Simulated assay, not measured.
Amino acid sequence: MRRITRRALLAFAAVCLCLLALGALPSLLGSGDPYYLTATPTDAEGPAVNATELSERRYPYLTAAIETGRSDPYRTGSVGLKEAFTHSPFDERDGLVARNPEARHDGGIVVASDDSRYLVAVRRA
């Protein structure tokens, strides 16, 4: 192998390793109080987002909140790097609002799952 080809391959491998590290590192970073996605049963009337058909892989915080009342904690990053690379309860809340903007109610969004309705909101501990 020529020396220039070898250097190019090593540089490419180093870039790939750095990108992999950036993908794994943000989940280890975190500071401040944790944020949770909470799901409180509600009798609110009006439009709601149908959560029955939502994927657990796409909405892991919402799924956990509906099952237990509160999702796993999410801590923000100290320098803003983490938010660009990780999935957060804020992303899920924004996704729910995008599905049905009229379902907003009392600082949260009304979600219907099976025969129950929940007020879903992001809360700080």
Score class of each variant (00 low, 15 high):
residue 62 L to W: 08
residue 108 G to K: 00
residue 101 P to H: 04
residue 83 E to C: 05
residue 62 L to R: 04
residue 108 G to Y: 04
residue 105 H to T: 00
residue 84 A to C: 05
residue 79 V to W: 14
residue 82 K to V: 12
residue 63 T to I: 02
residue 83 E to P: 05
residue 65 A to C: 08
residue 95 G to L: 04
residue 82 K to I: 09
residue 72 D to G: 02
residue 71 S to G: 08
residue 89 P to L: 06
residue 91 D to E: 10
residue 93 R to Q: 12
residue 84 A to T: 09
residue 69 G to T: 02
residue 96 L to P: 09
residue 58 R to Q: 13
residue 80 G to V: 14
residue 107 G to M: 04
residue 62 L to I: 04
residue 59 Y to C: 07
residue 77 G to F: 09
residue 68 T to I: 03
residue 62 L to E: 07
residue 101 P to C: 05
residue 73 P to E: 05
residue 89 P to C: 10
residue 89 P to W: 09
residue 70 R to V: 12
residue 99 R to V: 02
residue 76 T to D: 15
residue 80 G to I: 13
residue 105 H to M: 01
residue 67 E to N: 09
residue 57 R to I: 10
residue 102 E to I: 00
residue 63 T to K: 13
residue 67 E to H: 08
residue 108 G to T: 00
residue 85 F to A: 11
residue 95 G to T: 02
residue 83 E to H: 01
residue 90 F to H: 07
residue 92 E to N: 12
residue 59 Y to W: 11
residue 97 V to N: 06
residue 93 R to E: 13
residue 99 R to C: 05
residue 101 P to L: 04
residue 80 G to Q: 13
residue 99 R to K: 10
residue 98 A to M: 08
residue 78 S to I: 14
residue 81 L to T: 10
residue 56 E to M: 11
residue 104 R to F: 03
residue 67 E to R: 14
residue 99 R to Y: 03
residue 94 D to A: 14
residue 57 R to Y: 11
residue 92 E to S: 12
residue 64 A to Y: 01
residue 86 T to N: 09
residue 71 S to R: 07
residue 83 E to A: 06
residue 105 H to K: 00
residue 95 G to Q: 06
residue 99 R to S: 06
residue 86 T to Q: 10
residue 95 G to W: 00
residue 84 A to Y: 14
residue 75 R to V: 06
residue 86 T to R: 06
residue 103 A to R: 02
residue 105 H to S: 06
residue 87 H to R: 10
residue 102 E to F: 06
residue 81 L to S: 08
residue 108 G to D: 00
residue 86 T to S: 13
residue 58 R to N: 08
residue 84 A to H: 09
residue 86 T to L: 13
residue 73 P to H: 04
residue 81 L to Q: 09
residue 90 F to M: 14
residue 77 G to Q: 01
residue 93 R to W: 13
residue 74 Y to K: 06
residue 91 D to L: 12
residue 56 E to V: 12
residue 78 S to W: 15
residue 64 A to N: 03
residue 68 T to C: 05
residue 91 D to W: 12
residue 79 V to M: 14
residue 65 A to G: 09
residue 72 D to F: 01
residue 107 G to I: 03
residue 77 G to T: 05
